[in-house]
Design a protein around this nucleic acid. Structure first.
Lengths: 231, 231
DNA sequence: ATTGATATTATGTCTATACATAAAAATTAT
DNA sequence: ATAATTTTTATGTATAGACATAATATCAAT
């Protein structure tokens, strides 16, 4: 006996037709009513399938315009931005952390530009190292906007890393990360206990709370670090 | 007059309560029926809101177990894996491409291990360079499995890059990318017209078609390259 | 030809209801 | 006590019907 078709069946079938070029990039797909008739199910079921395909970046949908196959049906990969602590512990290592400095100061010019801050905005500048099994794992160089996060001026970052504290205490609405490769300079090399001139994986993250910059952080990962994404 | 509550309102409200620690990490949330009563809507509406929060990585849901706030409410970022060609053209630069070599050979040992290939599996080894405005942008070092993609033995990769050809012709079911930083050796430095010992952003991607390895590629990006992700 | 009003249409969303299913909880058998 | 079985429950999914909404298409007026 034939099983009832579910939205997952429809999703798979439509995806296959797209993959096999039965429906080519840019092409207008049949409407939900038509597909519902073909698959013998309710329109709502087709709707859910198509909506997820849209979320997955396979098709574009517009009211009245209908659904069409994306011109570049790029698959989207999702990856999680974990807490360093969780990341380290999930590898079975013991997490420790050391604060190097926490200074209240006026935002330097480059940071003003980077975060579109007004002049003389005060920021908290924090530098620290995250360890996995007592070996350096990540060097964190962070700036927190006093205007949006006044509490940062008082908190004792010896007890908890700014990373963890912010995640737990300060919400954000949107963020941006820039990944790149760089060469270890003296400061980084010393902090991460590696030679000078080594390849370092670098991440620069900025977060905002409804257009107000919250924090800017540069993370330097120890030599050999890999960021893995499956999809 | 009050508007009807939609699933987006519920999603936002629940998210806010979680952010403001009204519902803490690990905590069991009210069931869908309860929430539906509170918000004065149908259970299906709450269901959609909660399902999306689950997709977004905010909460965990289990049948009978109910929904709870994720212990580490990590936000997921989605990013697209673009075609090099599209990536370059979207920056307003002119894309060109040069094939260096395309050789049919038996998979070397390290690749056999990497892709879990049986011994003596034949592969196509392709090396090429992608240019933006005639300046090197990316060096591609690719291996294609002849068993899964026999056509790769015949195709003339002078006319189209393996990247583009594969995306258009060969489907895959899952993939894995590893991003890291490395130092340019002689070969890479020469290909990307940069000095020896510079920092290079590296990506290694493996794709499978239902457990059959399709291709393994190492991409080296020119000095200064940044991968940007917003979320 | 251009503008503006109006109709049309495909998707977006909500509802009430029903049944499915996984997993925890309670109960019974060993 | 422990294992096997049944019950309960929260989520998962499907449906028919309804109305909302955005965007296109059409047609009328300038």
């Amino acid at each position: 006996m034939l099983r009832k078709v579910g939205y997952k069946d429809i999703k798979r079938e439509v995806f296959n037709r797209i993959r096999q070029n039965e429906w080519a990039p840019g092409e207008l797909l049949p409407g939900e009513v038509v597909l519902a008739a073909e698959f013998g199910c309710a329109r709502a079921t087709v709707n859910r399938a198509m909506q997820e395909l849209s979320d997955d970046g396979i098709i574009d949908r517009r009211r009245k315009g209908g659904s069409r196959v994306k011109l570049t049906p790029v698959r989207q990969a999702t990856f999680e931005i974990p807490l360093v602590k969780s990341e380290i512990e999930s590898k079975g290592a013991i997490y420790t952390y050391q604060l190097i400095s926490s200074i209240k100061e006026v935002a330097p010019l480059w940071l003003q530009k980077q975060l579109s801050l007004s002049a003389y905005t005060r920021v908290q500048h924090i530098q620290c190292i995250h360890y996995a099994d007592d070996r350096p794992y990540q060097y964190e160089d962070r700036w927190i906007n006093h205007n949006t996060v006044p509490l940062s001026a008082e908190f004792d970052f010896n007890t908890q890393s700014p990373n963890e504290w912010l995640v737990n205490e300060v919400p954000y609405t949107n963020a941006e990360v820039r990944f790149s490769a760089t060469i270890s300079d003296v400061k980084i090399a010393q902090a991460l206990e590696m030679a000078n001139g080594e390849a370092v994986f670098k991440a620069e993250r900025t977060t905002w709370l409804s257009d107000e910059p919250v924090t800017f952080v540069t993370l330097y990962f120890v030599k050999g670090y890999e960021m893995l994404i499956s999809y």
